[in-house]
Design a protein around this nucleic acid. Sequence first.
DNA 1: CTGAATCCCTGCCGATACTG
DNA 2: CAGTATCGGCAGGGATTCAG
Lengths: 142, 142
Amino acid sequence: MTHRTVGHPSGPPAGPPGHHPANGPSGPPGLPDDPLAQVTAPASDCPVEITLAALHGRWTTLVVREMLRGERSYSELRDALPALSDKVLSDRLSHLVTAGVVERDRRPGWPARVHYRLTSHGHRLGPVLQALWDWGAQAGED
Amino acid sequence: MTHRTVGHPSGPPAGPPGHHPANGPSGPPGLPDDPLAQVTAPASDCPVEITLAALHGRWTTLVVREMLRGERSYSELRDALPALSDKVLSDRLSHLVTAGVVERDRRPGWPARVHYRLTSHGHRLGPVLQALWDWGAQAGED
DNA sequence: CTGAATCCCTGCCGATACTG
DNA sequence: CAGTATCGGCAGGGATTCAG
């Protein structure tokens, strides 16, 4: 994340994981309730951690944003983000593939061509990035 | 970031910053449009980066979640998150104060007592964490 | 009680060079 | 074209200790 590292923990003893936004018994609809909100340490199976882990790392959100606009080849991503090194780009892509956000489409022939596109799961990151944007854009207000 | 570090960049040459979700000219309402979406490097003034920076660091979201449930003293936070060291807890708190998410309430007397509560801006992180939760909870679906 | 200071270890990420 | 291999610098964060 940038740093940070929103990385995974060494693993708590056990028990039900959790960690969630905050909503009482009468919170928003469709949400798991309090049981999961009682976690006392970062758990890699907490939904919030899962998402942050998927977006983890510098450049990651920019790569995702680029693909939200459509399928991209490796070199197109490279061109769109000139300051991003090969190492980090391929790191990010394989990480996103592992996270189920992105699909590889390796096409036969020469020269080699590989296209990347978001999975349907990946597309649903749109609203997440939107929420992140919205909050950040409010910075000065109030 | 996790571990990653969603940290700040070394600073691109200049020019208009940006980086946003993804929405064409006919995207969702209330959103800034393409100009800001053309950034080619992580910019610390991009709304998405701002939010990720605010939530940056291990334990940060748990600390915020704890305070979404109400005002807390230092030791209450400590007790709620036993595995969190003093150093990191105070790091997180001062970081959140700087980010405008949390307010300190230092009460006179002895022993010293300090209460922390979310600012109104901080309260608005609720929907953000909600979005993060929602996506992460969908992991297996499809 | 509420922190700040220090130490050390680990993992990120940038640059460069090289392979299929 | 699309990556992997390697190396080095630096920041994150855990434990411990000390201070207001």
